[in-house]
Amino acid sequence: MVPEMAGEILVEKEARVHASGLAMTIVLISFSMLFATMFMGYFLFRVNAPVWPPLGMEKINVFWPTISTVTILISSLFYILFEKKRTLGHLYICSAFGVIFMISQLNLWGFLKTEGYYLSTGIYASLIYSFTWTHAAHIILALVLLGYVIFKVNRPHDKVRFEIIINSVGKFWHFLGLVWILMYLTLFIF
């Protein structure tokens, strides 16, 4: 942490960690507005519908969403452990569970198709698809970033830069986990 020192010039590298943390927070505020808008749309559709799900649709089975929730929670947990202990093993487990999350999402979409829920079959299915697709697009980005962290761990020549990457990717990964849990609770459970 950089202490408060108004009027004093700090070492560039030290302060960069601080600046990047701030920037990442702003980015995440932005991303959360994107999801918040989608949630707003979801709630408007939901409160305006006489019954939910509308148009005689059935609520979908929560099996795959639950698997996704568990995997993304475990993954986030291992990232926290990695941040604390800096052990490569934790990072690998975290990334592996990230990939499993993506696989469970693919299974969810496959399951939806076998049930006859396509993107254009009514507002209920459309919402589930557009939420999960938007979220999955961010997950893919995050997996690429996790791969980058693994790549960097093996070549730690610039310690400050490495620190910035770990912090930022971590924030992003936990954020996506949080969004997923909100989606799980609102779209699938209640």
Binding site: I26, I29, S30, F31, M33, L34, F35, T37, M38, S130
Partner: peptide, 14 residues
């Protein structure tokens, strides 16, 4: 910009 551009982004996405 940082707070409200994503709102339009979500609208455009939908």
């Amino acid at each position: 910009n940082a707070i409200f551009i994503p709102v339009l982004g979500a609208g455009c996405l939908l």
